[in-house]
């Protein structure tokens, strides 16, 4: 789709930015719930891209992979920080939100915690799929054999479910 971009000069960076910034921000914000931070990470990814030497036909997978990695890294960092802060959170008041929104927020937090715990490659794979990436896109982005994406994805799903159930039991969404 963007194979015409062959160098990473000033105008090319702008066209790459215009073509991918929205998608990268969307992908990152799935796990980084702070929109401003997600945008910042997407900008950092594109800035890194501008300094890297990426072949024209590898631009999209490079960006998707870099964004997924950056998102999972940020998630793991936040989870670690959250754990540290929780050690000092004895006096924190519980949030006073309506039950439903609290339950939904809890589910998001649970899913994020499980993703942060998975091996990074499995988490990146699930994130890319959740973002709508096709098997082909996943294969190129994660440098995998296209034929093995299905098997690897199933393994990642099993890891996700096992980790989720071990932590929270079999819940339905919002439950």
């Amino acid at each position: 789709m963007h194979a015409a971009i062959t160098t990473t000069g000033e105008s090319d960076i702008e066209s790459v930015f215009r073509a991918y910034y929205g998608r990268l921000t969307g992908l990152i914000s799935r796990v980084v719930r702070d929109r401003a931070r997600a945008e910042e990470i997407a900008v950092e990814v594109i800035l890194r891209f501008s300094r890297a030497r990426v072949a024209a036909d590898r631009i999209e997978p490079w960006l998707l992979r870099a964004a997924a990695t950056a998102a999972i890294d940020e998630l793991r960092r936040r989870e670690r920080r959250g754990r540290r802060e929780s050690w000092f959170g004895f006096f924190a008041k519980p949030p006073s939100t309506p039950h439903e929104s609290l339950a939904a927020a809890d589910e998001v937090a649970r899913v994020r915690a499980v993703l942060a715990k998975l091996p990074p490659r499995a988490a990146e794979l699930l994130l890319l799929r959740a973002d709508g990436a096709s098997y082909e896109e996943v294969a190129v982005a994660l440098e995998m054999n296209a034929a093995s994406v299905g098997t690897t994805l199933r393994r990642a799903q099993e890891q996700f479910r096992k980790e989720y159930v071990a932590r929270y039991g079999e819940r339905t969404v919002g439950g």
Binding site: F17, A38, V43, E107, V114, A130
Partner: peptide, 19 residues
């Protein structure tokens, strides 16, 4: 797993000019 991951949603309409 898809149901679980669906709760993550994702934001659209990033402000390209600001970015």
């Amino acid at each position: 797993v898809d149901e679980k991951l669906a709760v993550l949603g994702g934001t659209a309409n990033a402000d390209i000019d600001a970015g």
